[in-house]
Design a protein around this nucleic acid. Structure first.
Lengths: 219, 219
DNA sequence: AAGAGAATCTACCACTTGGTAGATTTTTCG
DNA sequence: CGAAAAATCTACCAAGTGGTAGATTCTCTT
């Protein structure tokens, strides 16, 4: 099933299973509302067993986030590489986010993860506080470059708009839509809303949500 | 200190103090991460004492939310009444939200309350799940009427935009900005972002964030 | 096959949680 | 004032929490 052959040590397999389970449960019910025993149980292990791999609950959360980041970056790189001709992450980042959200909307998997945790991590004592500050800063910067690119590439090129402001608004809208969608899926078409926003900005984003891209191999 | 004379029964005073404290703490750290003993302690009471007023933690949360809603509606009504000439809630709702966010940005009070709790309440087993579904539905409807009004009143009237879609986007953006702002206040000017969004839509919202309005009496 | 090391478990800890029972103090009001 | 009613407390409960110690079982490599 997995691409990695069975030649992983048992410990490593368990470790990954735990991380995957943690992702799932944290996405469902946040961090504070989840117990280690619960994660452990769903991973088919004892909570003491889990703590053999992670020094504590905080460690589990942070490791999971960082691992998840790594996978995300890898996926984007793959998406870039799969495109026609040379391109940079900045040039595809907006398309990629739209596509990602489209995918999550049809298969609500880890979609809620980031919204839920980032909101919770808003308190400076939260273990993921620093992580999320960094993540949002990076995301804003990347997306700002993405908007700068799209503005320049638009058919009538867009002038007079601040890419950084747009990046912030776009991220905010994506997060906020997620909440409304989770509460009441019928009320919200996240992709349509975001595409409409891009349209207002003067960016033609028709078809950006298409999922049929060669690199759609199992990962 | 309070406008209500001391002729409140002691119980009623305590009850209100508990609700106020709960608001504060839930805004700080969400629902799951807060214990009744903590709320009680900050309200200067025992947790058993608190449970004399509310049947349980859920009841405390819901009662608090509903009470808070009541106060909000009252405040908007006051804002409408303070305006020049007859007006409706629909006609001022967007101004009011901008103004409300501006106020919260300078005095971060209960600002995080709704974002934090609504995200948490996203799970259907959460006690406030139904409440938030209803709240967002109502908010979207009111705001959609607000946008319809603004579009018609704009100097070149705005055509071709769906007020409901804009309402959804606006709410989403407001929520999402809140998260970014809480994580890193320097990174985000919530009011500027929202005004910019309105500007893109063709609505001139200069000065909507002004706080100097006659009805700014203590409430 | 066997021994070393990794993986996992059982059993415990001290502490916190939401909630209850009932005694006791405080308010309220005739 | 004084008694009824309301408010509040102490003391408890069972269940759950994150985390630790140490025994035991399993895996892997030689």
């Amino acid at each position: 099933m997995t691409q990695t052959p069975e030649r992983l040590t048992k410990g490593e397999r368990t470790r990954r299973r735990i991380l995957h389970t943690a992702l799932e449960i944290f996405a469902e019910r946040g961090y504070a509302g989840v117990s280690l025993r619960e994660v452990a149980a769903r991973a088919g292990i004892t909570h003491a067993g889990l703590l053999h791999y992670f020094t504590g609950k905080d460690d589990l959360l942070l490791t999971m986030m960082i691992e998840r980041d790594r996978a995300e970056i890898e996926a984007i790189r793959g998406y870039v590489a799969a495109g026609t001709g040379p391109a940079s992450v900045d040039e595809v980042i907006i398309r990629w986010m739209i596509r990602d959200i489209a995918r999550n909307q049809s298969r609500p998997d880890i979609a809620p993860l980031f919204v839920k945790l980032s909101t919770e991590a808003t308190e400076s004592s939260h273990p993921a506080y620093d992580y999320f500050r960094g993540r949002y800063t990076r995301l804003r910067e990347t997306l700002a470059r993405g908007f700068a690119h799209e503005f320049a590439a638009a058919d009538p090129p867009v002038t007079g708009r601040d890419p950084r402001l747009c990046a912030q608004q776009f991220i905010a809208m994506a997060d906020g839509l997620q909440v409304q969608w989770l509460l009441d899926p019928a009320s919200t078409d996240m992709v349509a809303s975001l595409l409409d926003y891009l349209h207002v900005l003067g960016i033609d984003a028709q078809g950006w949500a298409e999922l049929t891209v060669p690199e759609d191999r199992p990962a």
